[in-house]
Amino acid sequence: MTMKDKVETAQDNLPFAIRHFSPDALRAALKKMYLIRLFEEGAEDSYTRGLIHGTMHLSIGQEASAVATCMELTDADKITSTHRGHGHCIAKGAEVGRMFAEFFGKETGYCHGRGGSMHIADVKTGNLGANGIVGGGLPIAVGAALTAKRLGRDDVTICFFGDGANNEGAFHEALNMASVWKLPVIFVCENNKYGMSTSIERSTAVRYIADRAVAYSMPGETVDGNDFSAVAEAMHRAIARARAGEGPSLVENLTYRWRGHSKSDRNRYRTKDEIESWMARDPIARFRADLITHGILNDESATALQQAAEADVAQGIEFAKASPAPQITEVTKFVHAEVSA
């Protein structure tokens, strides 16, 4: 074994993410994960204070899945998101200030106060929107991929969906069409074990949702969704396949939401032990420890990232609070395109 070989072997033993991404990109990823966590905690706090109405679905505990999935994407690549979509939105590049403004129902929000948490979107960074309908985004993602293929663009579409959506007809129709037409779309299932209260075991005939991929003749892979590197690695393969024109893939990230389904969840369907065991597998703490282990960060600089995220969130809330509400007279604005006189 030569020296060179030894070095390469040492490299190979490193986690994919450490090998594949620059230290700057990895630090930015950790900051985004903090941003997601703190954004959602800030949203929860604002909700408690009555600044946000309606409901919201928090993804606390799922940050690695969102950020690792979007690591290789550019603004030209599209995502479709779910009702639990705050993390996807931030991972894809949205600003927390405009997101808070949307949650607060303000005119400066991404949807000018018309959408709220469940329809948060940022079309400019390629986020085609969260969706209030389980499975609603699946065929839409296929359509976005169809556009890329028709127009000869090399962008890909990531379709986030949850374990609940895998039993919707739209899931099956969408995967089938994407495969028949070999479209550049990656179906990313964030399997957090429960569709509202109904567990995957009680609702789904297959053990892993990725097993469904075989029915549609596409690769399917199940990974630890709380392991940043594992998700990034699976996505890397799927994205490469899509960009090469070889068609869609299905990636299943096993993860867990620490909070209830929505703000009205009384958490009667899972045990405290289960929740705590998943909290012990906090994806942010794991990623932070990995980065420190591999010398990307030290404890001090990691904390600095966290504090920067805290400052962004605090600033975002202030921006949202100070923003103007939409005009009541404009309740029908945006129903149709503005007709220029």
Partner: peptide, 9 residues
């Protein structure tokens, strides 16, 4: 879609 996204789509 257009409305939910505040005219951005």
């Amino acid at each position: 879609m257009r409305y939910m996204l505040g005219g951005e789509a």
